[in-house]
């Protein structure tokens, strides 16, 4: 029983990070109907901003204040990056087919990865040790071991999800996001500047990915320019699992993927821990293509 609870705890804290990344995929899909494959690289850059906050800006390590400051910095930088990527790469393609934008997204992803791997203008290809942002302590509760990093991940995720919910459901800009995702033409007819809302959506999603990058790196403290690929793909699966375009779905999907992956790691099938997400993807596409919380929409041709 204790081991089961321990695994649930580990799974939830991993899943929380997937949830943060998945929200960005699903929000962008909501307003532009394409998968932003460069999102996983924004996640990676978030981790590098967290690293630079300590190694270059000399923020204090092993402190909650310093850690949260690094987190906030990563979110801000990633928000700006997301907006820049959208303006430069996707906005010129606004009226093109989804496939064009999708391939462009893959191109942007490869570009960011390769520039980052370049030792002169990027970070170089070698992994770097990620500093200990938060005080690392183990807390024993009954038979459970909880690390402060796990508590930070959970607390930060809960706060960010609450803020996101508030923005999307209680503010005018958030309502405009939902309106735009339902019908972009009608949105422009009530005076919504769709380009501004799309930029805002990229900022929001990328900030969450940036936070995810820092939190991921605190738990897996070795970062490199290709580190975004696998968590990014799993978060994408999470978004599809929950129902692409559906925000609670993305959060739920992230948690489920995190839990399943953790439980598989704890069995003799542990070598399949990375494969399981994709098995889930295949299953969901076969049996419930709209996702757990999504509604099936008939594509109008």
């Amino acid at each position: 029983m204790t081991e089961f609870l321990q695994q649930v705890l580990n799974g939830v804290s991993l899943g929380a990070i997937y949830a943060l990344i998945a929200l960005g995929y699903t929000m962008v899909y909501g307003v532009l109907r394409f998968i932003n494959f460069a999102h996983s690289d924004v996640f990676m850059l978030g981790a590098f901003v967290g690293w630079a906050a300590v190694e270059r800006l000399h923020l204090p390590t092993r402190s909650f204040g310093g850690g949260l400051a690094a987190l906030a910095l990563a979110m801000a930088v990633c928000a700006i990056l997301g907006v820049v990527i959208e303006k430069l790469a996707y906005k010129p393609l606004r009226n093109r087919s989804t496939l064009t934008v999708l391939i462009t997204a893959i191109g942007v992803s490869l570009l960011i990865q390769n520039v980052s791997q370049n030792p002169t203008i990027g970070f170089g290809p070698n992994p770097r040790a990620f500093p200990e942002l938060f005080p690392a302590r183990q807390i024993h509760l009954g038979g459970l071991t909880v690390s402060t990093n796990q508590i930070v991940v959970l607390a930060v995720t809960v706060v960010l999800l609450a803020v996101l919910y508030w923005i999307v459901h209680r503010t005018k800009t958030g309502t405009a996001m939902r309106a735009l995702s339902f019908n972009a033409t009608a949105a422009s007819l009530v005076g919504i500047n769709n380009d501004r809302i799309i930029s805002f959506t990229f900022a929001l999603g990328s900030a969450l990915a940036g936070a995810g990058g820092v939190l991921y790196a605190t738990n897996y403290p070795s970062i490199d320019p290709l580190m975004g690929t696998l968590p990014g793909l799993k978060a994408f699966v999470a978004a599809v699992l929950g129902g692409i375009g559906n925000l609670p779905g993305a959060a739920l999907g992230g948690l489920l993927i995190g839990l399943v992956e953790t439980f598989v790691s704890g069995t003799r099938l542990s070598t399949f821990r990375d494969a399981i997400a994709f098995a889930i993807l295949i299953a969901i596409l076969l049996f419930r293509p709209a996702g757990l919380l999504g509604k099936l929409k008939v594509e109008k041709v």
């Binding site: 309502t175 939902r178 309106a179 339902f182 919504i192």
Partner: peptide
Amino acid sequence: VFANLSVLENLHM
């Protein structure tokens, strides 16, 4: 109309 928004939200939009 924005089918996913409430009537009130539609009017506010």
